[in-house]
């Protein structure tokens, strides 16, 4: 797929138009860091035809990831999903006991969001213009995605 081609044709492209082509898929083959345990979500109710139809367009709701212990302390991710697309990533629990931890976190949280982006697109193997996170954030994110039935 060549989404980039939508705007690569001209030298000037409207950024507003570009934003609407954010990858809508959830690739099962996305390239991601570290050992990831795939978890099957537990259905809370027997699917009805209506629920099955809703599932086809992707899950919605707010999902809390597992609390993961890192060398800097526990981290926990919360994702908000609308129609199968991550619309918000929050980090309600993260270590901030020292200035150094805060420095790590200020870099880690944005990169976490990049991992969320990669998780949504099997077509990206790297993200530019971004900072980076540690494995703990990532593991919590994966568990949140699993709870949402997206991994």
């Amino acid at each position: 797929m060549k989404r980039a081609l939508l705007i690569a044709g001209g030298t000037v492209g409207g950024l507003g138009a570009v934003l609407s082509i954010t990858p809508p898929q959830f690739g099962s083959s996305s390239t991601v860091a570290g050992g990831i345990q795939k978890t099957t979500p537990t259905p809370t109710a027997a699917p009805t035809p209506a629920a099955a139809k809703a599932a086809a367009s992707g899950p919605s709701g707010t999902f809390m990831g597992d609390s993961i212990n890192t060398q800097f302390g526990p981290v926990q991710i919360q994702i908000t999903i609308s129609g199968g697309k991550i619309t918000h990533v929050a980090v309600p629990v993260y270590p901030n006991s020292s200035g150094r931890d805060q420095q790590i976190n200020s870099q880690a949280v944005p990169w976490l969001i990049q991992e969320a982006m990669k998780a949504q697109s099997s077509n990206i193997q790297g993200v530019g213009g971004a900072s980076y996170t540690s494995q703990g954030f990532y593991d919590s994110l994966v568990s949140a995605l699993a709870k949402a039935g997206m991994k």
């Binding site: 934003l19 954010t22 990858p23 990049q114 982006m117 993200v127």
Partner: peptide, 15 residues
């Protein structure tokens, strides 16, 4: 395939 993120919207790839 390298995605470039939006300058302000952290979870959006623009290119």
């Amino acid at each position: 395939n390298i995605g470039i993120r939006h300058p302000e919207e952290a979870h959006t790839v623009v290119k």
